[in-house]
């Protein structure tokens, strides 16, 4: 497996910041979801513990006093360049989409946009903030959902949850569990890893990863050339992505898609979800609770979904 977790995520930070973060107690590191760096501002962490400000003695405070660790412009630039693998030119498209991926951890970025005469964004300059989202592998966390994908129990499944509820972590675990060649009945999977967070460096998977592809192109390619039994997509959001999934469904492929939604009502209100349900191919929706990570709060099926 690819190494993930807090220690892996902080490798993109300059040594001075990294050392302070690694001084944090084990419990805090294990529960941290996000590390936020802003130019000339204190380093802020978010996690199951709430919001905390990194202190110079390696503890977490509630306020930004004189002991708070300040992220300098040079440190922010160094972290940005490290996330770009010291090759900004190789990540121009990612920058326009507002994020980079470092060791499987998504790093959101904020700066000033450069636009052309037509108003289209062409570049980002003067990075002023980074949000390092800590990705984790939790082997076995999706065990309860495996039954949905075996023996044709469900056609296609929506995995919904609020931000930081563990959707991506569960998707990764499902990918390994369903396509592992170490077990009988491994399914042929294609993973549309548009944000490069789902990739699993496992030696024996019956799975193909489309990394960094726009979702619609990847689905089209997968359906036409890879004959998948199941396509996995994370965080669908746009109409074009939904159109591509509908196309795949019409070609007879099953899907497992991740969607942002905090509740059943919010899920069913989403236009994209309504369109997916209209295909009648999505007959299960799994709702995750906001805490603890990876907790299934409900599995919606049949009339619960379609009569909404």
């Amino acid at each position: 497996m690819e190494h993930r977790g807090f220690e892996s995520a902080v490798e993109c930070l300059p040594a001075a910041l990294r050392e302070k973060l690694l001084l944090l107690p084990e419990g805090v590191r294990a529960q941290c979801f996000e590390i936020r760096l802003r130019k000339q501002q204190p380093v802020v962490l978010f996690g199951a513990f709430g919001c905390g400000v990194l202190q110079s003695d390696g503890t977490l405070g509630k306020t930004a006093g004189s002991a708070a660790v300040i992220c300098t412009g040079e440190q922010l630039d160094a972290a940005f360049h490290c996330c770009c693998e010291y090759s900004v030119y190789a990540h121009e498209n990612d920058l326009l989409r507002g994020f980079l991926t470092f060791h499987g951890n998504r790093v959101g970025l904020v700066g000033s946009a450069v636009c052309d005469a037509a108003g289209s964004m062409t570049a980002v300059r003067d990075i002023t903030g980074l949000n390092v989202r800590v990705a984790r592998d939790v082997p076995g966390c999706a065990r309860a959902l495996l039954g949905l994908f075996r023996d044709g129990a469900a056609q296609s499944v929506i995995l919904a949850g609020p931000p930081a509820s563990g959707k991506t972590t569960m998707l990764r675990d499902l990918i390994v569990s369903l396509s592992s060649l170490e077990h009988e009945g491994a399914q042929k999977l294609c993973v549309i890893d548009a944000r490069q967070e789902l990739f699993v460096a496992h030696t024996a998977l019956n799975c193909d990863f489309y990394r960094g592809y726009p979702m619609e192109i990847a689905i089209d390619n997968a359906v036409k050339t890879m004959s998948p039994q199941l396509i996995v997509c994370d965080e669908i959001a746009t109409k074009r992505e939904v159109d591509a999934i509908c196309y795949g469904v019409n070609c007879g492929v099953r899907f497992l898609v991740g969607v942002h939604a905090s509740s059943k009502a919010e899920l069913l209100r989403r236009t994209q979800v309504q369109r997916l349900l209209e295909t009648r191919a999505f007959d299960r929706a799994v709702l995750l609770a906001s805490a603890p990570v990876g907790t299934v709060s409900a599995v919606l099926a049949g009339r619960t979904l379609f009569d909404a």
Binding site: S87, Y89, E92
Partner: peptide, 10 residues
């Protein structure tokens, strides 16, 4: 400057 700008700049 290497690696710090877009492709034309490099």
């Amino acid at each position: 400057v290497l690696g710090k700008t877009d492709k034309p700049g490099q």
